[in-house]
Design a protein around this nucleic acid. Structure first.
Lengths: 230, 230
DNA sequence: CAGTGGTCTAGACCACTGG
DNA sequence: CAGTGGTCTAGACCACTGG
């Protein structure tokens, strides 16, 4: 016999899923849930308990229980795959390919990739969406030496990050994190007017710099987190 | 009246702290705890519940409850001391103390510091300047238990971070990085109208959370960097 | 004030594990 | 088998919030 509190938990998750309860909304009280499902209040409470500890709901004594206003937190310490992150949060991941082309390095790109000027490099621009809301604008340069077939990939099936980690396993990375208001082009692709968290990340494989990525995240939809132990 | 399950929770944490129970050891059963503390099993269970959801204990039906194995250590990102950073760049470091006071915890501060409400905590606000230009607005709460003399320090001579790392050596930290436009008060102290990089950092010493800091950096004057090797 | 969540009791039956 | 955790009941009193 399946636990009754799980039925209630599913019910709450369903209501959130179909949009009956949205972020910051008040959900049914413990007594209402208990009555609706003909269980004791302790059992209804357990359903709410588990959703609180999972970060889906937040409680406030005397006020009620509310859908958490949740911006995702991801790790600074890992090289993350945005698709895995989104799916890991139980959300729908999609992506739009804005650009996928071969270009010649200019001075700045050549410097960053430690190549010489006017060499072929691959250039891709993608927008990653979580439940159809843009969460990352990814502008990436790739050294063809490390990933010769990069330009023929289907990035709807596999993110650039995931593909690169297979053909050119990472040995090293650096990143710079900053806050800024990006260009209008980028803001429009992100459908946002917020300041962005920009991550500039260079990744090395065994034979040198494989790729440089500029990742823009709307400040109100994305946070970076990390936990350290000494 | 303090909740009884918290007493039991503290007891379990103490036993782990002093080494009576080590990683993978079996801890007292729920019935034993209930009897020892003269509470119902549900109450003993609640203490174990919270420690499970915090990752300290793991349960196994039919077997018992065990101390969780330690999480992997990642010491890749350092806790920065802004003064060292600035001096390291060959620039002039100064700082303004905006506030240094003793206040009572409100609900939110109590939650974040894992203290109860209306306890004394120290509160400091500083602005750190590089060549006389503000680069960081630091709003910090400190648990007096970990640093009783915090409020008597001269932060023109030594940053809060440097002081705390001496009196309450760090064992753990977490941080969240986000981009936002801060309040007018903060913008005015920073003499900036740019979006900011906000770092929320909690630091632990052995006995719990020692301090929580909100660090605001104007987006055009500060970047966060890191380098990883695999 | 009525309603909310926070804690707690003293029971119960269950599924599961090892011996 | 006895002991463990997993679930559940039908109550209780409390602190807190808004009106």
């Amino acid at each position: 016999m399946r636990a009754r509190y799980l039925t209630i938990k599913d019910y709450i998750l369903d209501q959130i899923e179909i949009g009956v309860w949205r972020a910051s909304d008040k959900v049914s009280s413990e007594n209402e849930l208990a009555q609706k499902f003909s269980v004791s209040r302790m059992t209804a409470r357990k359903a709410v308990d588990t959703l609180c500890s999972e970060g889906t709901l937040v409680r406030s004594q005397g006020l009620g229980t509310f859908v958490a206003d949740r911006r995702p937190v991801s790790s600074l310490l890992e090289i993350h795959n945005i698709a895995d992150e989104v799916v890991g949060r139980g959300h729908d991941y999609t992506c739009r390919v804005i650009k996928l082309e071969e270009i010649l390095t200019d001075k700045s790109a050549a410097n960053l990739l430690e190549m010489s000027e006017k060499q072929n490099v691959y250039h891709s621009i993608l927008v990653h969406l979580e439940d159809n809301i843009p969460v990352q604008y990814e502008d990436r340069l790739v050294n063809p030496k490390h990933a010769p077939d990069y330009i023929h990939q289907d990035f709807l099936a596999q993110t650039p990050n995931a593909y690169l980690s297979i053909v050119a396993p990472l040995t090293e990375a650096d990143h710079i994190v900053e806050a800024l208001v990006p260009s209008k082009t980028i803001l429009s692709e992100l459908d946002s007017d917020q300041p962005c968290l920009k991550i500039t990340r260079r990744t090395w494989s065994r034979r040198g710099i494989a790729s440089i990525a500029y990742l823009y995240h709307p400040g109100d939809r994305y946070r970076l987190g990390g936990h350290l132990q000494f």
